[in-house]
């Protein structure tokens, strides 16, 4: 089995109103010094087999075709 963690984040320059709202809520809770919050998504994917090179290509394709919208989002893939 291959375990991978995919992290999807908004591209720089894309407004993140949800991140802004979270940033505001942190301030309301009394956390000082929070300069910025950007929110994203995490996907933990488990693949059958142990072909790491094949898994890398497959996970990137999954991101490009479904998990991320590359118009607005970047992704990183970390294989455990």
């Amino acid at each position: 089995m291959i375990k991978a963690r995919i992290t999807v984040t908004l591209k720089t320059g894309v407004l993140d109103p949800q991140g802004k709202a979270i940033e505001g809520a942190l301030g309301t809770l009394g956390f000082g010094g929070v300069a910025a919050v950007r929110q994203g998504k995490v996907f933990d994917v488990v693949l059958e087999g142990d072909d790491r090179a094949g898994a890398e290509a497959q996970l990137a394709a999954m991101c490009d075709r479904l998990l991320a919208n590359t118009v607005i989002e970047n992704y990183t893939v970390d294989i455990a």
Partner: peptide
């Protein structure tokens, strides 16, 4: 393009 959450949330 893409359609994102309204800025007002």
């Amino acid at each position: 393009g893409a359609l994102m959450r309204n800025t007002s949330l």
